[in-house]
Simulated assay, not measured.
Amino acid sequence: MPSIDVVIRLTQEECLAHYEGRAQNVLAHSLDGRRVIFPATALRRIVGRDGVDGVYRLSYSDSGKFESIVRLHR
């Protein structure tokens, strides 16, 4: 399963926009500088009281469909 490590920094307000459906996708940057877009629904698994801030591993199916997100470190 392909994966990519990304830095995600979103405030509580930005996360709320994603949660409420005002934003469908999240734009992040990988550790190697690539732009990565993934579904905002993935944030529901990782959002905290203050938003999201850290390095996460996104995993995809071989066909490119988002499958999982795991926190690597802050």
Results as ranks from 00 to 15, higher is better:
Pro2Cys: 00
Asp5Thr: 08
Asp5Glu: 12
Thr11Glu: 13
Glu13Asp: 15
Gly21Phe: 05
Asn25Val: 14
Asn25Trp: 13
Leu27Phe: 04
Leu27Cys: 03
Ala28Thr: 02
Ala28Lys: 02
Ser30Asp: 07
Ser30Leu: 03
Ser30Ile: 02
Leu31Lys: 02
Asp32Ala: 13
Gly33Ala: 10
Arg34Gly: 02
Val36Glu: 11
Val36Tyr: 05
Phe38Gly: 04
Pro39Thr: 11
Pro39Gln: 06
Pro39Cys: 05
Ala40Pro: 08
Ala40Tyr: 07
Ala42Tyr: 06
Arg44Tyr: 14
Arg44Glu: 15
Arg45Val: 09
Gly48Asp: 08
Gly48Asn: 08
Arg49Gln: 15
Asp50Pro: 03
Asp50Leu: 09
Gly51Cys: 05
Val52Phe: 00
Val52Ile: 09
Asp53Glu: 08
Gly54Leu: 05
Gly54His: 05
Val55Gly: 01
Val55His: 08
Val55Phe: 03
Arg57Glu: 12
Arg57Leu: 01
Leu58Tyr: 00
Leu58Phe: 04
Ser59Asp: 10
Ser59Lys: 14
Tyr60Thr: 00
Ser61Ala: 13
Ser61Gln: 06
Asp62Lys: 08
Asp62Ala: 12
Phe66Pro: 06
Glu67Asp: 05
Ser68Ile: 03
Ile69Glu: 07
Ile69Asn: 07
Leu72Pro: 06
Leu72His: 07
His73Pro: 00
Arg74Asp: 14
